[in-house]
Nucleic acid binder design. Structure first.
Lengths: 247, 247
DNA sequence: CGCTTAATTGACACGATTCAAAGATAGTGG
DNA sequence: CCACTATCTTTGAATCGTGTCAATTAAGCG
């Protein structure tokens, strides 16, 4: 679990998620206000950030690392219902208790705000609430796409869709259309994949093997997957194109 | 498909969804402004309201009736990703194309606004955008709960959960703790149920039969289901309680 | 280099789907 | 008012995909 401790300056203008988080639309003076409220908190990989029912005294943005949102049934069956990546927001106005379990799956840094002052701030600064609405609606779309996957896709389609999701999210903007950003470094175990896809570990493993044998991907060790045939993988995922809906 | 045409006055203060829709927090003068923009549009049961990719020139609130949001795969597999009930909102700021197919499953009346003027209005009236954020986050929670259902629940649990969902939503506020609002009039065919639950029609039918044979429910004709044992049904649904998270 | 944990593979079981047919229901017209 | 018809629902039998349980292999770390 060694990881270079990423030193994060207190200066919001230097923040790696400056342009995407809830604060992305803020004017300099609004940023100043946020800057006074915020503080950082870090979690190690595997650590629990919150469990369902917890009193949420803070809200936060993910600055670095990855966390999962999940729901657990009484008998232990678990479904990951969201992946929290840098710039994603944790908590919501008007809700004092956590609805989901939140776990760090890599080392995570959060930019935290005490809830009450943050909520006051939000009502005063439309730039924050506008951005929060936009982010919430994006998450809603993502959740609904995932519902299609969970409800209707086969195991093979699920795994293919997952690899494409990771590929899209880890793509460095600009440059990868040259073709060779198709090497995925998964920060995730098979268990996390399975829990996200509504499958078992064994099934995920079998589907990866099958895709490898069919020449679509290459599996190198536990954490690296190379997409050998992106077009084929897209076909396997069962997704149609977006019909030109990329507002 | 006969249905008494519900005459809806143009007066927002008389509106059946006045207290729950995006406009619920508006001051009288804000309502006046909305009133000038709005117009009603009706759809018959079964009619398509929008298909994925459509140019959305309007946004709207459901006033009466029920509609579904769904995603369809190329080969026809379909998943309903949301139920639109009175007060639910259709469309989103900053998005010009429909992301989902929208279909009326009963006769539906929408309160419509042309998109551009509505968006301008929203930026000026925080009461609307606040409410939209709240509603979006509620929908997100509902979507995530549904992900647990789709990913991890058995067919029997899915059907039980569905009946409880309908029961909760059709419960008249106050009064049903006397016990006998447990007669559900489903406006839905088995097909809609199946498409919502990620199952086939046959499986839904079998599970309803099984629940009936076990004395949990009673099925009267196609559209009426009586919950004979609510506690048992809750057990069957696989949901734990909410841990006291009812903000 | 060995040890611990994660991942893979295999055999089998079970639940849900598929395909097919019969039964019930609601709407229509005589 | 009843028969007729189209549609929806239920039921049955066989199949297929994924889960379960168990054993083996590989990877990563001290």
């Amino acid at each position: 679990m060694k990881q270079t401790p990423e030193l994060i300056s207190g200066d919001c203008s230097e923040c790696p998620i400056r342009h995407r988080a809830v604060c992305s639309r803020c004017e300099p003076e609004e940023l100043d206000e946020l800057e006074q409220l915020k503080y950082y908190r870090t979690y190690k990989a595997g650590q629990t950030i919150a469990v369902r029912g917890d009193d949420l005294t803070t809200v936060s943005s993910v600055v670095t690392g990855t966390a999962t949102l999940s729901r657990v049934m009484e008998d232990g069956r678990t479904q990951i219902v969201g992946l929290l990546l840098p710039s994603d927001f944790i908590g919501r106005p008007g809700r004092t208790h956590a609805q989901y379990d939140i776990q760090a799956i890599s080392d995570v840094t959060l930019c935290c705000f005490r809830r009450a002052p943050f909520e006051q701030m939000v009502t005063r600064t439309p730039h924050v609430s506008e951005r929060m609405l936009e982010m919430a609606l994006d998450e809603l779309d993502a959740a609904r796409d995932w519902m299609l996957l969970l409800g209707r896709k086969t195991a093979r389609e699920k795994v293919a869709s997952f690899l494409l999701l990771i590929q899209k999210r880890s793509a460095r903007p600009g440059g990868e259309e040259l073709g060779e950003d198709l090497r995925l470094e998964l920060p995730l175990t098979r268990e996390v994949m399975a829990t996200y896809l509504g499958l078992t570990i064994e099934t995920v493993s079998r589907q990866l093997t099958a895709l490898r044998k069919d020449g679509v991907i290459d599996v190198q060790g536990k954490k690296v997957i190379v997409i050998k045939d992106l077009i084929a993988l897209m076909m396997e995922s069962g997704d149609d194109d977006d019909g030109g809906i990329l507002d």
